[in-house]
């Protein structure tokens, strides 16, 4: 399906929002305003945005430790996201989660997760709920190449395939499992090949081409909504930054390799393509970027002006009140 110009521009805006959000989050982390650990998605934006562009508002996704991109692509609020990173009461999790645990159940974002592969069974449960409900909703599991080597990946896909759950399993293969070369830990170079073992479609797509990702997602979503079960989509991509934003960490990746992938920038590539097709002007692109930067500035201001939670709030929300 050809997407409307409006929709394509919205996708570009979403990708650039992820990038600008994370550039600012990284700066503010280095400055000490954001605590703990921050994992940046920069370079992989086409995956989250391409997949989420094929979803409806009531479809559900689950994320990983590298979750900002999935949150924003599903429509999360910039203010509440930044406020969560800032540890404020107004954040998505009232300051209890931080960067690694942002969730917004109201938009079908079931949470970032600090355990590699930990979210895969959980979102498969959302797929079961969608099947029991019978309203045609789908659920999407985002995970990395590292998670594809872990038991929950195989166990969950086997169940989803057996029960024909309306699921997309989206592997973001960024070539590195934290600090380890993924190829050294994968028995096959393509994670998608594993789909054959479960009798489901498995496709490899260029994860830096947002339209290619979108088209693969659309096919898988249609299949899932039609009751034909799950699909595995492997998006080959690359993160531009280290595993985390922590200063001084070892990064095994050659500088030339990083630079080579930066040349394949998914955002620049999409913007250039839109310009070539006469759907975007350089001026409009500059204006869009300025609007995004202003929105992020507003989110930072919102966060700075928001109160920290009262210390006693640490004792709240352990259990839901019936």
């Amino acid at each position: 399906m050809t997407l409307t110009t409006e929709k394509q521009l919205e996708m570009l805006r979403s990708m650039q929002t992820i990038r600008r959000f994370e550039e600012r989050a990284s700066d503010d982390y280095q400055a000490g305003a954001i605590y703990g650990v921050v994992h940046c998605y920069i370079g992989e934006e086409a995956v989250a945005v391409g997949i989420c562009a094929a979803l409806n508002a009531d479809d559900q996704i689950i994320s990983t430790h590298r979750g900002h991109g999935h949150c924003l692509a599903k429509g999360a609020d910039l203010n509440r996201m930044m406020a969560e990173l800032y540890g404020r009461q107004t954040g998505y999790c009232k300051g209890k989660g931080g960067s690694m645990h942002i969730a917004d159940f109201s938009i079908g974002m079931l949470g970032a997760n600090g355990i590699v592969a930990g979210g895969i069974p959980i979102v498969t449960g959302a797929g079961l709920a969608a099947q029991l409900e019978g309203k045609g909703r789908v659920a999407v599991s985002f995970f990395g190449d590292g998670a594809s080597n872990a038991g929950p990946f195989h166990e969950s896909i086997n169940i989803a395939a057996t029960w024909k759950l309306p699921m997309l399993y989206v592997c973001e293969n960024n070539l590195y499992s934290a600090g380890t070369i993924a190829a050294d830990t994968l028995a096959l170079s393509d994670v998608a090949a594993r789909a054959a073992g479960y009798g489901i479609p498995g496709v490899v797509v260029d994860g830096n081409d947002v339209m290619a990702v979108y088209e693969a997602a659309e096919a898988a979503v249609n299949r899932a909504r039609a009751g034909q079960g799950p699909s595995l989509i492997e998006c080959k991509t690359y993160r531009w930054r280290g595993h985390t934003e922590r200063p001084g960490q070892e990064d095994p990746r050659p500088k030339e390799e990083i630079e080579e992938w930066r040349q394949r920038d998914p955002i620049n590539r999409f913007a250039t393509s839109l310009m070539e097709h006469g759907l975007l002007t350089e001026e409009a692109w500059q204006k869009m970027d300025a609007e995004i930067l202003a929105a992020i500035e507003d989110a930072v201001k919102f966060s700075e002006e928001s109160p920290f939670p009262e210390p006693e709030a640490a004792l709240e929300d352990i259990f839901a009140e019936s």
Partner: peptide, 20 residues
């Protein structure tokens, strides 16, 4: 379920968070 406690325990969590 398959004999895969990790998966079906997680499935319960996701379904519970989705209204079941």
């Amino acid at each position: 379920t398959p004999i895969a406690e990790g998966a079906f325990t997680g499935i319960a969590i996701g379904a519970a968070g989705s209204g079941y």
